[in-house]
Design a protein around this nucleic acid. Structure first.
Lengths: 149, 149
DNA sequence: TTATTTGCAAAGCGTTTGCCAGCCC
DNA sequence: GGGCTGGCAAACGCTTTGCAAATAA
């Protein structure tokens, strides 16, 4: 399999290699697409972006790769309530998402107070927190006209 | 349609009636099942419980009722990450869920600090918060008694 | 070489829906 | 009576999978 343009390996490509994954052309491209995405694409969208680079990639392979990448912890899956999984490269940080219910835009944020509160709550209920997930759904506050208030 | 035992109308039954819904036998039973459930059953489970009261209820009807009830706001849908929707009667309070990753048990909680933090975050990002959703996944802390293990 | 990985199409799962009979108001 | 509702089975959207061919190591 020949990749049209041999870009330097993306972060995810390197992460795959480090874990000893067999680096097929498809995996390389999917990894690159994910590394280059700043948003939270669903599988179809990853497939679309990957296909734009090389048409010899099937949807099934994208699904398989996403699952694999998620299992080894190099990408993260999210559910924004629209029925399909959304993904992003796993960076080191803990963050949450605010979804604009009008545009679908996703804003990331993190907050120490929140983390502290959640950890405290879990402990108080008698649990060790293994994971958490917070989504805020909101509507952009209108900035009304001339007075840039 | 005859209900085997004519219990006094459940809270949800009354809520339906108040909104002028045509009260069929099936709806009455599904409403009752939900009102009597203290957990977060999925559709199959509601179907199972309803069928135990009257066998003449189809899964499609349960699905349709759940959607209807959710649309008029008398029940709430949740997603605990297991791929199917879970429901509970809508009470007035805001609460969140902690899911025991070992048993699937769901613990409800609410916390003013948390609400405050979330509202503040949304506003800070320039949004009015319309909704939120927080799930904590945890593992029960072992209480290491005199070898009760 | 040889165990993995891929593409394809079919299957799976939870959920929705078209259709017609049946029930509630 | 007349329209809303229910049952059935088929369809749906997303995701997974069985199998044979292709490929990385």
């Amino acid at each position: 399999m020949t990749t049209p343009e041999e870009a330097l390996p993306s972060r995810l490509e390197r992460a795959c290699a480090e874990r000893g994954l067999k680096m097929t052309g498809q995996r390389r491209i999917i990894a690159r697409v994910l590394s280059e995405s700043a948003d939270h694409p669903d599988v179809e969208e990853v497939y679309r972006r990957a296909s734009a680079i090389d048409t010899g990639i099937s949807l099934a392979t994208v699904y398989r790769s996403m699952r694999l990448f998620e299992e080894i912890g190099i990408i993260q899956r999210h559910d924004f309530g629209d029925g399909r999984a959304r993904y992003e490269e796993a960076r080191g940080d803990h963050h949450h998402h605010l979804i604009d219910i009008e545009t679908g835009e996703v804003v990331e944020f993190q907050d120490p107070d929140l983390e502290a509160a959640v950890t405290r709550i879990a402990r108080h209920l008698g649990f060790d927190m293994i994971g958490q997930r917070l989504e805020i759904f909101g509507r952009r506050i209108q900035r009304k006209g001339p007075e840039t208030a």
